[in-house]
């Protein structure tokens, strides 16, 4: 019995804005369940005296000074934009109020 249900897969797919067909959902129920099982295996290790890793790099306090640098030219700004007009990027009209 997988730890993951079809509903879980659909929920996560929804968050990632993915539309999955039934075969993919079925496959992901197993794959994601296997990942969780593997986590369980890891959880069996005794980590009592091990500091949790906060970051992949063993560094702290890397900063830039507060200096203004040149921004992109207008031409470059819109080079990769599927659609733009005047000074703006254009996207399909935002209808709902889900701004964070």
């Amino acid at each position: 019995m997988s730890k993951i249900t079809t509903e879980d897969v659909e929920y996560v797919a929804g968050l990632a804005q993915l539309i999955l067909d039934d075969d993919s959902k079925e496959r992901l129920v197993h794959e994601m369940g296997d990942i969780l099982n593997y986590m369980d295996a890891l959880n069996e290790l005794d980590t009592e005296d091990i500091e949790p890793m906060m970051h992949v790099l063993d560094l702290a306090n890397v900063y830039r000074e507060d200096e203004v640098k040149k921004s992109l030219s207008k031409e470059d700004v819109f080079k990769n934009a599927p659609k733009s007009e005047g000074d703006y990027f254009l996207v399909p009209r935002i209808l709902d109020n889900t701004e964070s």
């Binding site: 659609k83 990027f89 254009l90 009209r93 935002i94």
Partner: peptide, 12 residues
């Protein structure tokens, strides 16, 4: 976001 762009589009 700027919603005063043309119909069906928003500017960013």
């Amino acid at each position: 976001n700027d919603h005063t762009q043309g119909i069906g589009e928003s500017g960013i």
